[in-house]
Simulated scan of single mutants.
Amino acid sequence: MRLTALQQKNSLILHDADSLSDAPGSHQLSPPKLAHPVSPALFSADYWRDQHLIVGEAPGRGSALFLQATPDQQWVLRPYRRGGLAAKLSEQRYLWLGAERTRAFQELRLTAALYEQGLPVPTPVACCVTRHGMTYEAALLTVRIPGARALASLLEVGEADAALLRRVGAMIRRFHQQGLDHIDLNARNILIAPDATPWLIDLDRCRLRESGKWQTANLARLGRSVAKFSPPERVEAIMATVHEGYREGYSAP
C-alpha cells in the first residue's frame, strides 16, 4: 500500500496509490471497473447521490454512507463530525494545525499501518481534508466489509454465542499486542463478517502506545457498551467470555 498526497486548490487528498489513481479526472481500480473524479467531490454525499450510488447508511453521529463504488465493491464514506459541547461551536470544522495533524490523515495512516500488518481493519481508500483558513473539514473512504453486522446488533437479538465472543476477545488482544489504544472500543465499532471473523473499525483519534492501563480501560469501555445492547443479567457472562478469549487468544471457528 502506497499512500500518496494530491493537492487540489484548498483540499488535500491522501490516498492509496495502488488502488486509486491520481491521473487527472478519474480513479481506476485494477482492473478498471468504474471511473470517478479524483477530487473533493469524491467525498461529497451529493456526488454519489446524483449518480444513485448510495446504497445505505450506518447509524450514529456522522451518518456514514455506503456507496456502490464499483459493480462488485462498496465503500464507506464517513465525514468527521464533532459531538458534545464542541458541536455547538461547529459540527464539522476543526482547528488547522497542519495536514499531518488532521484527524483524517492520522486515521488513514494508522489504518493503513495496521492493514499492512494483516490485522482485521477495513481496507483504506482515501481521505480528503479541505482547509478554510484556520479550520478544516474532512472525510474518509474505506472499503466496506461485505455482509458484516455490528456486534451490537448480534447482542440485541441474542446471536452472539460464546465462540464468537471469545474470537472478539482474541481480536482485541491482537490489536493490543500491536499497541493500538482504541479509545472508543464499543459494540458498534466491532463488525462480524459472515464467516464469524471480527473486524475493528473507526480508528479516529486512536494511537499506538506502549502497554499500560489503557488496555484495561479499552475493555471496560466495551463492557459499558455491551450493557446497552444486552439484558442486564447477561452482561457479566458476556464480558467474562470476551476476557477469556482475550487471555487465551482464542481463534478457532
Rank of each mutant, 00 (worst) to 15 (best):
L3E: 05
T4K: 12
Q8L: 15
I13H: 06
L20T: 08
P24H: 10
S26K: 14
P32G: 09
P40C: 10
P40E: 15
F43L: 05
A58I: 10
G62I: 13
S63P: 02
A64F: 09
F66S: 00
T70F: 13
Q74N: 14
Q74A: 07
Q74L: 06
P79M: 07
R82K: 07
A86D: 06
K88P: 00
K88D: 02
S90E: 09
Q92G: 05
Q92S: 12
Y94E: 00
W96F: 12
A99N: 15
R103V: 03
T111Y: 03
Y115F: 09
Y115T: 01
E116C: 04
T123W: 10
V125H: 03
M134K: 06
A138K: 02
A138M: 03
L140M: 07
L140S: 01
V143E: 05
P146S: 05
A150V: 03
A150Q: 14
V157D: 10
G158P: 00
E159M: 11
E159S: 01
D161H: 08
D161S: 03
A162P: 01
A163M: 09
L164E: 00
M171T: 14
L180V: 05
D181N: 07
D184C: 07
R188M: 09
N189I: 01
I192V: 13
I192S: 07
D195Y: 13
A196R: 11
T197C: 14
D202M: 04
L203K: 00
D204N: 10
R205W: 08
E210Q: 14
E210P: 06
S211V: 02
W214S: 03
W214Q: 02
A220E: 06
G223C: 03
G223W: 00
S225P: 11
P231I: 04
E236Q: 09
I238E: 00
E244K: 02
G249V: 08
Y250C: 00
